[in-house]
Design a protein around this nucleic acid. Structure first.
Length: 107
DNA sequence: AAAGTGACTGTTA
DNA sequence: TTAACAGCCACTT
């Protein structure tokens, strides 16, 4: 039955709404989830999600620098996330970052 | 129950 | 421009 707080379900719902070819920052997702200023909680929520089994596009959530963030524990999936995003039309620059001004999701 | 940990962010230097 | 610090909340041990 109960697994986590309702806030987490709200986060997942928001992330699922991110359209293909766009990305959102943790802070942005937090705001839309009624968790303004608690970007860390969003990161935790996504950390709890399975990358393979979940239907949540966790790869579309990036940090404020426009770079993909990964947990050291999940190390090894970096190439996967980048590949997925590139497959959606998002390009990375030399520094391995993406142009947030261009790809940021504006609900 | 207290302390530690973590997919973050904004400010300061 | 990047680097370092503190603040923030929830989950784990």
């Amino acid at each position: 039955m109960s697994r986590q707080s309702n806030s987490y379900d709200r986060i997942y719902e928001i992330v699922r709404q991110i359209p293909k070819g766009k990305v959102a920052t943790y802070g942005q997702v937090a705001e839309l989830s009624n968790l303004a200023g608690k970007a860390r909680v969003v990161g935790y929520a996504l950390y709890r999600v399975d990358m393979k089994t979940s239907d949540i596009p966790w790869q579309r959530v990036v940090n404020a620098k426009g770079e993909v963030s990964l947990s050291p524990l999940r190390f090894g999936t970096d190439y996967l996330q980048r590949s997925l995003l590139e497959g959606e039309g998002i390009s990375f620059n030399d520094a391995g970052k993406i142009d947030l001004r261009k790809y940021i999701w504006k609900p």
